[in-house]
Amino acid sequence: MASVLMKTVIINTVIPFGVVRKVMPLWIAALVMLVISFFLDRDKTFMALKRSWKTFSRMLSMFIIVLVLVSLSLSFIPPETITRVLSGKGIWFGSLIAASVGSITAMPGFVAFPLAGILAEQGIPYTVLAAFTTTLMMVGFVTFPMEQAFLGTKVAFARNISSLLIALLVSIAVGVAFGEFF
């Protein structure tokens, strides 16, 4: 229990740190490129900025909807609930629940993996964790509106279903690799 607590503390310090570390090089890269572009061709650079704004403003309404959905899912299904729901279930039932939870919720990687690490320490099978993390990354119920806006309903749906199947195969393979089936 003590180590779980310690890891939770680590997660909480890692989150702001991770964000800064992720964002800084991106700002530097964007500004350096912008300056280079400006010296090469002013008109093209202004055109690029106009395009950037256009792409962003087209997506703005989707952003708002997805941000609201992600915030709601993360607070109604917090990490503690996920831990409780996944504990003490068998491999099959556990994986099924893990895949559903992973598909419905969305979580940044720097929250999801520390959580998975804690769950592994509590003895939850790797098969279940694979189902959880893979669906979390690949299948997005809350990000579906955004996918829909770019790919259309049918293709977005097909992509999510195929991703779900891939995730299940991955979790079976992980289970075999960790000797959890036999």
Partner: peptide
């Protein structure tokens, strides 16, 4: 923090 640089890069990519 993420979107402005990301979309600037997308715009530059599109143009260049």
């Amino acid at each position: 923090g993420l979107l402005p640089p990301a979309f600037i890069l997308i715009g530059l990519f599109e143009v260049w």
